[in-house]
Amino acid sequence: MTFVSFLIIDDDQLDRYLLMRDLKRGGLDVKVFECRDGVEAIEFLSNFEANRSSQGKAFPPRILFLDINMPRVSGFGFLESFQKLRTQREEYAQCAVIMVSSSEHPDERVRALAYEGVVDFVIKGRTSAEELRAKVDAVLAGS
């Protein structure tokens, strides 16, 4: 069974839970990390060495699911910081980001996909577990 690790960054606990269930349902061996906003996520990723030693191959996560509307630091705020991290650690260059938003505003999709590493954009509650699996497979096939 293919092993994949994910990082879900979303302030809504229920949304994080449902995404995790969707991912686990897809017949993959998964490890899911969770962060409640952009600040927590940057702190988590910045702590590379410690996470690497405690999480092993699960760190860094292969795919990041990133919400846009979050308190403190939004999804776009996170992307700005993450771009710097990617230049500092080549391991992060392998991380793909899939945006997960409640917003259907086309401007947000265009803006998000312009960031390096952002590979897809899904609307919350509109994507089935099967579709999600297909998106994950597409990322894995590209690597």
Binding site: L14, L18, K124, G125
Partner: peptide, 17 residues
């Protein structure tokens, strides 16, 4: 409508699980 429909969708999906 958005903020009312989002949690409803989430609850429906949760009910499935």
């Amino acid at each position: 409508s958005h903020d009312l429909s989002s949690p409803l969708t989430a609850i429906r999906r949760l009910a499935t699980y």
